[in-house]
Design a binder for these strands. Sequence first.
DNA 1: TTGTATGCGTTATCAT
DNA 2: ATGATAACGCATACAA
Lengths: 339, 339
Amino acid sequence: MRSKAPTIKDIAREVGVSISTVSRALRDMPEISEETKKRILEYSKEIDYQPNMVATSLVKRNSHLIGVLVPNMDYFFATAVKGIDEAAMEAGYTVVISQSNESYGRELANTQRLINSQVDGLIVSLSSETQNLDHFKRIQKKETPLVIFDRDCPDIEASKVMLDNELGGWLATKHLIEGGCERIAFLGAQKGLAISIGREKGYRKALKEAGIPYRPELIIHGEFDKDDAYIRTMEELRKSQKPDGIFAVSDRLAIGAYMAIKDKGLRMPEDIALVGFNDEPITSLLFPSISSVSQPAFEMGKMAARLFIEQLNSDEEYENKVVYFKPELKIRDSSSRNR
Amino acid sequence: MRSKAPTIKDIAREVGVSISTVSRALRDMPEISEETKKRILEYSKEIDYQPNMVATSLVKRNSHLIGVLVPNMDYFFATAVKGIDEAAMEAGYTVVISQSNESYGRELANTQRLINSQVDGLIVSLSSETQNLDHFKRIQKKETPLVIFDRDCPDIEASKVMLDNELGGWLATKHLIEGGCERIAFLGAQKGLAISIGREKGYRKALKEAGIPYRPELIIHGEFDKDDAYIRTMEELRKSQKPDGIFAVSDRLAIGAYMAIKDKGLRMPEDIALVGFNDEPITSLLFPSISSVSQPAFEMGKMAARLFIEQLNSDEEYENKVVYFKPELKIRDSSSRNR
DNA sequence: TTGTATGCGTTATCAT
DNA sequence: ATGATAACGCATACAA
């Protein structure tokens, strides 16, 4: 039902030149007389000519489309995507976003869909379910650029933009210890999740440095989900030996814990101190406000797009780069004990 | 740097048939022998053949790409986009999301970019700054389908997916009145914003029905921004004649008001009752929790995509459709007065 | 049932 | 400085 858009052919006919001349004028190539160029440009403006990128893509064998695959659109990813979008736009790329909803099946389907849409490559953050990475390895075999960010898996080699998760876990735990906590629970997500693993490493390191014994019963794994975190925390709080501090690997989980602590009638930070991860806006709005480890989401997104474009434009064998960003601890009321 | 992907030409050569036969086999057309079809399909699988949608797009003159332009990625839009994505995916379309960040300039640039990426049309929610709609009218002239959702402007004719904002405003205000509020402030966004106008209409209607005089001094307009809402509310609370209820046209604004009320040391709902709009998850997590008018974001997104695809597939002159959804009031603590 | 030839809108390689 | 022509990968009308 759409009417045919004007093409360079139409312009050529109307202006009385060949299509190659039009093409050159439009792309501002040197070997062309100012005179004809002006006529062509004028007429193009007049009919509001829009170049057909599909045709260009076919010739140039690229689409200038970047496929971005994220597990969800929470604050962190929304911000990261903005960063990707900004860097991509600057470089003349358009971003196609796809959400896996933390589901491996959807991640698979979306990957296929993006590839079929002829994206020039993928910037990916893994779903929490993802164990098998064959779908990504397959596209790498075709030399399609792939950049992993935030949610990683050591199983795959690629350029990566990561947070120093161990440092984040260490900062949070050390802070809790300094507040006098001695039984600090680690509220993680699925056991296999790389960010969870890294943050737990930092947690253990901080405990060790402080001479606090590591207690496996304080390590709580489960779904990457608020309600599940609530249930898990509730169980923990029903035990006779309660934790006196909780480090949650994500604010989403921290909020579940937060609700459980409140519902149980315990005080924060007096009875239990809490630290989350991601520095979501909500953490500062709650009462008490929740301490959280913040990541430079926007910058990480920008970097991911930059690495992607760099890889895309490299002709020789590209050497994967891994860039780490430093987290920062935002101390708020949920963990501020005045000892 | 990417290696050449296999094409139907390669398959044709290898299998020993013509490219048209391959094309037909791949698309499962009737006039083809099972025998050759099987051979073609088998070989395609073997080399993991992926059809080049760019080439198909060029021939078919469509990209199967839907451009989606949203002002931001807050809860409402993130959810709506999920709905769009789901319906689009079912119909074989891929969604290209672009955020205007509430900026007219970016909206303009992104519109251009999406059009140049050859999207088949646009699903748009206007930025709060947008006054001039020429950029959309221009693409409509080319018979490119356009669907507006949520953030509308009466200035433009198109298919629209809207919330019954007047009903929303009416529900919220009526509820406040029933709680005994007599001086209800209306915390709006920019004066021109259609959702703000509709919700104010409902507000005035409810006042009128209750015989409460309309006081212009209680109508507070400003930026669509939490911090600005905080400042505006603070000013209001400093007056001798404070409001005893606030209806904010968005939870983003409601949260600003919420902080101001708290900082001012006033109690909710006793001193001031508060109702927001959008039913963001955060509203139920705060203490007191914030009452809010909820919109069926996911369903609205799905409907927008459906209208879009319907319009795209219509051959005759398409008649624009406007679909309204009903809001629902979620009553929480910030407005629950036990009289 | 299969093959041939043409076109989609653009870029690029030759000529002129 | 400009033009003719062959790609790019696929779909399709027309032949065989």
